[in-house]
Write a protein that binds this DNA or RNA. Structure first.
Length: 621
DNA sequence: TGCGTGTGTCATTTG
DNA sequence: ACCAAATGACACACG
């Protein structure tokens, strides 16, 4: 048969009355009740926000943190102190309470950190002429991390903070700031709590050579004769701090220069005694990773559909210590276009459920009748029912209903429309087929019966017309649906011409192929539905992983802040033989692999840091 | 009239 | 090798 055959296709077209059904069904896909599409997406977003909010509650953040103005209020010291008083014991131990008076407390984590330097800090600065510093810079003397927590919504500042974290490896000590920081005046809570008064006899451990830990040597019996283990050239200056009792300082940092962590790099251009060499910090790797993670987070956001605002908000969320600022409209899960379409589909499903519920159930039952052809989608139907809630594909239901091809009556799912169905199909209702095959046209009375005959004629497919013209003695339904053996038996019962046999075989072939095509299309649709569901699942997973990532990064930063505070606390308590604090520009704390802490000169620390820095690079090569 | 959709059909592949 | 099913591609009807 040639294509010309199709040009004479008379029965292949849709009956005029058939379209309303198609339109009705297709309408489920196109029509979108005004409320549903958006509402579904927003509900999901709200869920996301709620999840994030709950996470934040765990971390001590309230929902009001999402409000920028509220976040500014958060800097109110009183409030912070109140929060901090509740949580300080988690990390600071004795003396922290007094310390907290001069600390800002992270609204979420409860971490305390120096909010500002003592009021007389400028006078101290002046007392150290060579290291004087513009007062305006003094707030930067602490780690950028700390300042970052004070203005969590200053995005640029946050970024710089992170960059500063990165640069902690290349930390250079600002002498003046260090002096200011660690030369606390007598009235300073830091000094009053962590160091002896200037008059207090230095609690000098002989074995410590030069270093002592004023006021808290019982807590930090850090010193032991480990100087010998250090290079002779610098041994005189080495002040090993070995905790006699297990200190809170963990050895997991390895032999690392801690000082680099806590003194901002090149805060200004002022003199730096030990300027130059980069120092690795114990968290350097982590910081790098965190930084890279954040960058990759941004990249991910940008690459995978986050718009810049969303990406920046995600970044902001990460940057913001205490604030989760994911706007509901920027939920990662709401970014998917496919999800949007799905949600709109679901809306139509819900809205059209009443009108199509019967169709759906009929569709399910009709699918179960497809066994003859082999493509049963019972399970698929169930899946679709489940998916309707999550994905929403009522329109596909309509399609499937329409595509219950194995049913002799294509419109069986909507019985009242059954007779309207356009009929290119070979699977006509038996009555129609019988009418087409059995009664001779002239047998019917005139009038209404003629009209009925015309109608039935129009209902007949092309091949049915041909079969009738060729006087095929059995129905097309039998021709198509009988098993091979029975079909052959049927053929053998009749004396058929070659033309008749050929037509019968064509009818059978086309009929089978038509059903196969219908099943194929149905399968294709199901595949698409499944893929869309998979995409949605993956998007949900992705959003969840992103949230987890943000949480991990946040907790990582909090841990770094705690380590930083501990470092400052320990270093600030150290006193030399004259009872004076050590200059952070000249000395640094360093973890040894065995858990001990050494006070070593900066120069030595720089050298070691440089050495350590080379190792990983060499490994990479 | 052009477009999108649904359908039937053919040719071919696949099992 | 044969057959049926599956599938891509095309044409057509319809809204």
């Amino acid at each position: 048969m040639t294509r010309l055959d199709r040009s004479s296709h008379s029965g292949g077209g849709h009956a005029k009355g058939s379209r309303p059904l198609n339109s009705l069904l297709a309408g489920h896909r196109l029509a979108q009740p005004p409320s549903a599409p958006g509402s579904r997406a927003s509900v999901q977003d709200i869920d996301l926000i709620d999840i994030l909010w709950r996470q934040d509650i765990d971390l001590g953040a309230g929902r009001e943190i999402f409000d920028y103005s509220h976040r500014q209020k958060e800097q109110d010291v009183d409030k912070d102190l109140q929060d901090g008083a509740e949580r300080e014991d988690t990390w600071s131990g004795e003396g922290a309470e007094a310390l907290a008076r001069n600390l800002l407390v992270d609204g979420e984590t409860g971490e305390s950190f120096p909010a500002q330097f003592p009021a007389d800090i400028s006078s101290i600065t002046e007392a150290v002429p060579s290291e004087s510093e513009p007062p305006g810079l003094q707030n930067n003397l602490l780690s950028p991390l700390l300042t970052g927590t004070e203005s969590p919504f200053d995005l640029e500042q946050q970024w710089q903070d992170l960059m500063s974290i990165m640069e902690m490896q290349a930390m250079e000590v600002n002498t003046s700031t260090s002096e200011i920081l660690y030369s606390a005046p007598p009235g300073d809570p830091l000094s009053t709590n962590y160091s002896l008064a200037p008059n207090t006899p230095i609690n000098q451990n002989v074995s410590l050579h030069q270093a002592s830990l004023g006021g808290c040597s019982q807590d930090f019996s850090l010193f032991s004769p480990e100087v010998e283990s250090l290079p002779a050239a610098s041994s005189s200056a080495l002040l090993p701090l070995v905790p006699s009792n297990s200190t809170s300082l963990n050895s997991t940092f390895g032999s690392t220069n801690l000082a680099g962590l806590f003194f901002p790099p090149q805060l200004n251009g002022t003199a730096n005694d030990t300027a130059g060499p980069e120092l690795p910090d114990p968290l350097g790797g982590l910081l790098d990773e965190a930084m890279l993670d954040e960058i990759s987070l941004m990249d991910l956001a940008i690459e995978e559909g986050f718009n810049p605002v969303q990406a920046s908000q995600l970044e902001e969320e990460f940057d913001s210590d205490s604030g989760l600022s994911l706007d509901s409209s920027h939920s990662p899960s709401s970014l998917s276009s496919s999800e949007g379409s799905s949600s709109s589909s679901s809306s139509s499903s819900s809205s059209s459920a009443s009108s199509s519920s019967s169709a759906s159930s009929s569709a399910s039952s009709s699918f179960s009748e497809e066994g003859a052809v082999g493509y049963s989608s019972d399970s698929e139907t169930l899946d679709l029912e489940e998916a309707e809630g999550a994905v929403g594909y009522q329109p596909e239901y309509s399609k499937l209903c329409r595509m219950s091809y194995q049913d002799p009556s294509p419109l069986s799912c909507l019985p009242y429309l059954e007779h309207v169905g356009h009929n290119h199909t070979y699977n006509m209702a038996p009555s129609a087929l019988d009418a087409a095959d059995l009664p001779p046209p002239g047998a019917l009375k005139k009038g209404g019966k003629e009209k009925q005959a015309d109608f039935l004629d129009k209902q007949m497919s092309r091949d049915e017309h041909r079969a009738r013209a060729m006087k095929i003695p059995f129905t097309n339904d039998k021709i198509i649906n009988l098993p091979v053996e029975e079909f052959n038996e049927l053929l053998s019962k009749y004396q058929l011409s070659e033309a008749q046999l050929s037509l019968i075989r064509d009818i059978r072939r086309r009929g089978k192929n038509k059903m196969a095509a219908q099943n194929c299309r149905k399968r294709k649709l199901d595949t698409i539905l499944n893929l869309e569901r998979d995409v949605e699942d993956l998007q949900r997973d992705k959003a969840r992983l992103l949230r987890e990532k943000v949480e991990f990064l946040r907790s990582l930063r909090q841990m770094k802040q705690k380590v930083q505070s501990l470092y400052q606390e320990v270093f600030g308590r150290l006193r030399d033989e004259n009872g004076r604090p050590y200059s952070p520009s000249q000395y640094a704390l360093q973890y040894a692999g065995d858990g001990s802490v050494l006070l070593i000169p900066r120069t030595l620390a720089d050298q070691q840091a440089r050495r350590q820095e080379r190792k990983p690079k060499d490994r990479r090569k």
